[in-house]
């Protein structure tokens, strides 16, 4: 199963047929495994890695450190839920160290993201403080570097 997952993580467009050929399993097994992983939320979706900086789309991303007071009974999960339900939130992680949540937020402009932080995130009950860091340039995401390196010159080789 993990072999199939690793391939999908590498390129989610691989077809069951291709994965079957690459892993030496049969196609039906691959299809069943993928279906089961989807059902069990091991696979949670398929998406594209887009460098929006190369488009005309205006977009900013911020990484926000959030300190909170954990709630009785629910611990961190309840506040987490109240944060991640917002569409603006791209990712949310509980962290070890000097703050609790790392929230990744995307918006159209600095103002939009700032407004989200001041009007939605900060007022949530239990949130003690926030520190917002705007991402200035995205070099690498999900193991893919976004800078395109120049090609080595054309070669004629006899090997």
């Amino acid at each position: 199963m993990n072999e199939i997952l690793k391939l999908l993580e590498e390129d989610s467009r691989y077809t069951a047929k291709e994965i079957a050929a690459m892993t030496g399993k049969d196609e039906e097994y691959v299809r069943d495994t993928v279906k089961r992983c989807e059902d069990e939320h091991i696979i949670n979706g398929y998406t594209a890695l887009i460098d929006w900086d190369r488009t005309s789309e205006e977009a900013v991303t911020a990484f926000i450190e959030v300190k909170i007071t954990p709630q009785r009974d629910d611990g961190y999960d309840r506040i987490a839920r109240r944060i991640y339900q917002y569409d603006e939130v791209e990712s949310l992680y509980l962290m070890s160290g000097s703050f609790d949540f790392s929230v990744i937020v995307t918006g159209k402009s600095l103002r939009e993201v700032s407004r989200f932080v001041s009007e939605k995130l900060a007022p949530i009950e239990g949130v003690i403080s926030t520190a917002t860091h705007f991402i200035m340039k995205r070099y690498k995401d999900k193991h893919r570097a976004f800078l395109v390196e120049p090609e080595q010159e054309e070669r004629t080789l006899f090997i």
Binding site: E154, R155, T156, L157, F158, I159
Partner: peptide
Amino acid sequence: PSGIRKFFDILDTMKDAISLGIGE
């Protein structure tokens, strides 16, 4: 002389050609 040189010469002139030729 290199027996496959001509392949690379032809290849250079082609668009969307794929090389599964060079062994590296």
